[in-house]
């Protein structure tokens, strides 16, 4: 300290942190920003949903069109998520356990759907299966409906949720290496036994993490599904599309009631995700994020 004549105890402040006033200002700025953009919208969903009381909320989510939308959303997720799990495990196995040419390029291609606008994801299927396409007349002649029907919605959902499981598993399995698998194989285990008994237990938390994020996106996808669905009430409306229709009809309370279900799912997803991160961070990929 420069001034040695001060008799009272010197104020000790670490040189590697900010002054208390600055710290408080930064915390307040961060909280204010997060409140305006994250917390208040979340609170708004539940407040608006319950504006007319629990009975109105229950009525809004149990009317036939809402139930049909919930059923369709669950069905689409139940098809799309397992498909992407199988793909994610297969891709991670090939990429993490083997050395081959063009691996980095393959990883870039797997990430591609994340950089494509959801609306473009829907548009590509309209171009592929629409009446003006090569496949369109053939599909029509054979009575197969893809667009404005469930198959199109599933395809668009699979497209936008494509990378979630793979990109969680690839870095995790790369880090774990393949010495345990090699040991199992040298002790006489078959390939499948090695996968089920050695690899799967090692990657289960990472896999669950990927499934959670994939499922949240699959149930909440709006743009891609909106383009291919045709918005047929009770038939091809998923929950997010039902929310849009109710909102555009100025039926705000019912719209927010259905939205509150999806917001609840989002909170549940975040809770599980945080628990996995806290308890089993050793079983997750070293660097995560989107």
């Amino acid at each position: 300290m420069a001034d040695l004549t001060v008799p009272s105890a010197p104020v000790i402040r670490s040189a590697t942190t900010e002054a208390p006033a600055t710290r408080i200002a930064l915390v307040v700025a961060a909280f204010g920003f997060l409140s305006l953009f994250l917390f208040l919208p979340l609170v708004e969903v539940f407040l608006e949903a319950l504006r007319n009381g629990p009975a109105a909320w229950l009525a809004a989510i149990s009317e036939p069109d809402a139930l049909a939308a919930i059923r369709l959303t669950l069905l689409v997720a139940a098809i799309a998520v397992p498909l992407n799990v199988v793909f994610g495990v297969a891709a991670a196995w090939a990429i993490a356990k083997f050395e081959f040419r063009g691996k980095a390029f393959l990883i870039t291609l797997i990430d591609l759907p994340f950089s494509v606008s959801p609306v473009i994801a829907g548009l590509v299927y309209v171009i592929l299966f629409g009446s003006g396409s090569l496949l369109g007349p053939w599909l029509k002649a054979n009575g197969i409906e893809v667009l404005f029907a469930v198959p199109g919605i599933v395809l668009a959902t699979v497209f936008v949720t494509f990378p979630f499981v793979a990109r969680e598993l690839i870095p995790l399995m790369q880090e774990q290496g393949s010495s345990e698998e090699e040991a199992a194989l040298s002790l006489g285990a078959s390939g499948w036994q090695t996968f089920w008994r050695v690899t799967l237990p090692n990657i289960r938390w990472g896999l669950l993490y990927g499934v959670l994020l994939c499922n949240a996106r699959a149930m909440g996808e709006f743009g891609a599904v909106s383009v291919v669905s045709g918005h047929i009430r009770g038939l091809t409306n998923t929950m997010p599309l039902h929310i849009e229709i109710l909102y555009n009809e100025y039926n705000f309370a019912a719209s927010f009631a259905v939205a509150s279900l999806l917001a609840g799912l989002a909170l549940f997803t975040l809770l599980l995700k945080t628990l996995i991160e806290l308890r089993f961070s050793g079983g997750l990929a070293p660097s995560r994020g989107h």
């Binding site: 909280f31 708004e44 994020l213 989002a266 975040l270 995700k273």
Partner: peptide, 26 residues
């Protein structure tokens, strides 16, 4: 702090349509 940290991921988990109507009415 942990709660705030977890909630930062909310936009990844909350469906865009839900965020859209909430922001619009707010």
């Amino acid at each position: 702090r942990r709660l705030v940290d977890a909630l930062v991921d909310l936009p990844f988990a909350l469906p865009t349509a839900v965020a859209g109507i909430a922001l619009a009415s707010l």
